[in-house]
């Protein structure tokens, strides 16, 4: 549907949404959100086969599950701009009586969200269940999921990773956001995880690496590659190397902006680095 320029324009607008959302309520998680802006834009606008509108069961369409729910700002922005709800609703992020809770939930009925996430490590199991439901329904569409790299420290992931290969759940593409950062520091400082690629391969997954995870064309190419590997008896993992805080220079390459909002001055700098493209909400 889109050419690269359109997608890149959307990325810049999504960055502005993220910054403005977290700034307004002085809370939320801009770092990981910015790092995944290109991925979300590519996924929802180019990669996934989506139906118009939203229903929970999502029959005959690709589905997405966000496991690291704290990057809700990028999720909400991309959902709104993909037409799931009015972009003005981004104004309500984290406010009382909002459907845009701090972490995504089905509880308030926000279109586009199929599971609550926030408590880490649960999303892959849910995605696998949805993938198996698709198989039972003879629905050939795919399940996509996104997980943080630090999140892999949660043990439930490894139950799910083991299960997926054992049960040949080959209609899932689970992407790991390899930004190398978590709340307390770099993943290497907090709890080094060794070779994530080696671990997934040892568990029986096909692994695709996207070295430039903030480059739209690299994402499109890598995800097309991943898609071509589905249906072959093995689950597919994409290792997406991203830069936390991407697109806002002072937020990049650090864990400092994991869960911290910019002040007025910082917001102005961030927005100046990302001039309005499609229109602010």
């Amino acid at each position: 549907m889109s050419n690269t320029q359109q997608l890149e324009d959307l990325v810049i607008q999504v960055r502005r949404d993220i910054l403005r959302m977290v700034h307004k309520v002085n809370s939320g998680h801009p770092g990981g959100s910015l790092g995944c802006a290109e991925f979300f834009v590519a996924l929802f606008n180019e990669i996934m086969d989506r139906k118009e509108g939203f229903d929970m069961d999502g029959i005959e369409e690709d589905l997405f599950f966000l496991s690291n729910g704290h990057i809700s700002p990028v999720y909400y922005s991309v959902l709104a701009r993909a037409g799931y709800f009015e972009i003005e609703e981004l104004n309500t992020f984290r406010l009382i009586n909002s459907r845009l809770q701090g972490h995504p939930t089905t509880h308030e009925g926000l279109p586009g969200v199929r599971i609550a996430s926030g408590s880490l490590g649960q999303g892959m199991s849910v995605a696998l269940g949805a993938a198996q439901a698709k198989k039972l329904n003879n629905d050939n569409h795919l399940i996509y999921s996104l997980h943080g790299d630090g999140e892999l420290q949660e043990g439930q992931n490894w139950e799910a990773i083991m299960y997926a290969a054992a049960k040949k759940v080959d209609n899932i593409i689970s992407t790991i956001d390899l930004n190398g950062q978590q709340i307390d520091g770099s993943t290497d400082d907090v709890l080094p995880m060794g070779s994530i690629k080696g671990k997934f391969e040892a568990f029986g997954w096909t692994v695709i690496e996207i070295e430039e995870g903030n480059n739209i064309n690299a994402i499109l190419k890598g995800m097309a590659d991943a898609k071509s590997k589905t249906g072959k008896g093995k689950p597919v993992c994409v290792l997406l190397k991203t830069v936390m805080g991407n697109g806002v220079d002072f937020m990049m390459h650090t864990h400092a902006w994991h869960g911290k909002a910019p002040n007025d001055e910082q917001l102005a700098i961030g927005l100046a680095q990302n001039a309005e493209t499609l229109g602010d909400y």
């Binding site: 929970m56 199991s125 696998l128 269940g129 198996q132 329904n137 139950e159 799910a160």
Partner: peptide, 26 residues
């Protein structure tokens, strides 16, 4: 057999998979 899922000794994964299976009407 097609509607039965042996998950092994991994209860957390079982609950998550069950939640996912509901998406699609199971």
């Amino acid at each position: 057999p097609e509607r039965f899922f042996q998950v092994g000794i991994a209860e957390a994964n079982m609950i998550g998979i069950a939640a996912g299976l509901t998406i699609g009407g199971k």
